[in-house]
């Protein structure tokens, strides 16, 4: 048992005025509001002003924390005469994203640099935003039946759910680039094409269509 479940409630709860006979959980309770004599506007105002003034003075006069310290949310206050401002100045400074952050898509590559996707149409089927367009074509390789001639994702419609990545049977599409969708000036530019997504692509560590040694035994995973 964790301790917080056993901890007694810190107060006795609201005062119950009446309880319903049919369902005892329906009760009317007395609402406790601080009465007039308890309200001391002036003292409370002074106290609040002291707090905000302290923050203001500290943030106004002391130098900023380093970008690294600001990027860590909830980092303890630096004792060495720095202010408490947490703002990360975005385009110049960035917080490191969690590893599982779903960024822009990329199309993974085969050993020879060809696209890994076999145009199985699993991802456009799974996509809840209907933003993946694939036009398949016949592949040059005898082992592989199809490949995408066109593979487009409209990043404006994409809700970054990651279902396409889950749906893909052969590790051909991933969202682990750590990049945001870029701001664009017209909507057509927000469409990612096969080429742009392959440009971000890397070689997959999965085996090539069942061929070759198992990567689990041989290969060290390539870095991003």
């Amino acid at each position: 048992m964790s301790s917080h479940q056993e901890a007694a409630p810190s107060h006795d709860g609201p005062k119950v005025l009446a309880v319903s006979e049919r369902s005892p959980r329906v009760r009317s309770i007395a609402v406790v509001r601080p009465g007039e004599p308890d309200v001391n506007y002036l003292a409370a105002t002074a106290k609040g002003l002291a707090i905000t003034l302290k923050h203001f003075a500290r943030n106004f006069f002391l130098p900023m924390k380093s970008a690294d310290e600001r990027a860590k949310p909830g980092a303890p206050v630096d004792e060495t005469w720095k202010n408490e401002i947490e703002t990360v100045q975005y385009p110049e400074e960035k917080v490191t994203y969690p590893e599982r952050f779903r960024g822009l898509h990329r199309l993974m590559l085969r050993d020879d640099g060809a696209v890994r996707c076999v145009a199985c149409m699993c991802c456009p089927t799974a996509c809840p935003a209907h933003c993946i367009t694939i036009v398949p074509e016949e592949s040059d390789s005898l082992r592989i039946e199809k490949r995408p001639a066109i593979f487009e994702i409209d990043e404006l419609r994409c809700i970054a759910c990651g279902l396409c990545v889950e749906a893909c049977p052969c590790d051909a599409i991933r969202m682990d680039t750590g990049e945001h969708a870029k701001p664009v000036e017209d909507r057509a530019r927000s469409i990612e094409t096969k080429e742009t997504m392959m440009a971000r692509g890397i070689q997959s560590v999965a085996t090539q269509g069942g061929e070759g040694p198992n990567w689990r035994e041989t290969a060290t995973p390539p870095s991003k």
Binding site: T52, H55, F56, N59, F60, N83, E84, I85, E86, T87, Q89
Partner: peptide
């Protein structure tokens, strides 16, 4: 700007 400084923002 001042309110930001009071709230630890920039």
């Amino acid at each position: 700007r001042q309110s930001a400084m009071m709230q630890d923002r920039l």
